[in-house]
């Protein structure tokens, strides 16, 4: 990589964090000119953009990244590259991380597209890519990433609930009244109220509607 094109020096800056909050995009392509072009566009659009000229380079730095959430992220990768192609990266990423992947290619081969989608790519873009198309695809990928993160957070919170609290919360979300729950579970109404209060506290919700949304999002299996 040329010096002018080194990855951003403002990584630890507030500016970088602000960009990350909007979206962190990793571009991988063996063509330097392509990397520079996409980076120019994404920098302008306010994203935190990192570029790698090979999938191996990216996989190398990946373990050293802090695992804390800094914002939604996605990977934009060329499908045909020396050493490791986009599909192989997809397999490797699935093992290590759960970042949405966008694959791009210079040719519109139907076979490639099918392979890409089957491998789990979120979208398949054909070069040259229109800026609007690219940004839309990236935004969609970032949204997927955000939702995914949200689900993960909520799942973590749900895991802090005791079995009883979870049971009560599930029944509340299903629309049962406190009295019915007390009867069915054969516990005192006071106890039901206590469990319900604790569950809502742990899940950081203030209304029943929010509780319903979380339970739905995490798709807690009914026993």
């Amino acid at each position: 990589m040329t010096p002018e094109f080194a990855n951003p020096p403002y990584k630890s800056d507030r500016a970088w964090m602000k960009r990350c909050a909007q979206g962190h995009v990793v571009i991988i392509d063996d063509d330097l000119d392509i990397l520079m072009a996409f980076k120019a566009l994404l920098d302008l659009e306010g994203y935190a953009c990192e570029t790698f000229s090979s999938a191996l380079d990216y996989l190398e730095v990946l373990p050293s990244r802090p695992s804390i959430w800094i914002g939604p992220q996605c990977v934009l990768c060329d499908i045909k590259m020396p050493l490791m192609d986009g599909l192989e990266l997809q397999r490797q990423l699935a093992l290590q991380d759960d970042v949405p992947l966008l694959l791009m290619s210079g040719s519109s081969g139907a076979e490639e597209a099918v392979t890409a989608f089957r491998a789990g790519a979120l979208d398949f873009l054909i070069k040259p890519i229109d800026a609007d198309v690219l940004l839309t695809a990236i935004n969609q990928a970032l949204a997927v990433s955000a939702t995914h993160h949200q689900t993960q957070v909520l799942t973590t919170r749900l895991e802090t609930l005791t079995a009883r609290e979870l049971e009560v919360a599930r029944r509340v979300a299903a629309g049962q009244r406190n009295n019915d729950i007390a009867l069915e579970l054969n516990i005192a109404l006071r106890t039901v109220k206590l469990y319900r209060h604790r569950a809502m506290e742990k899940l950081e919700v203030t209304s029943v509607a929010e509780l319903v949304r979380i339970i739905d999002a995490c798709q807690i299996k009914t026993h």
Binding site: D31, I34, A37, L41, K80, G106, P128, I129, L134
Partner: peptide, 19 residues
Amino acid sequence: HELNQPLTAILTHAQTVRR
């Protein structure tokens, strides 16, 4: 494919300038 690379870069830079 090779010709496509500079064309892609040109398109993206042109649209970036416009933005």
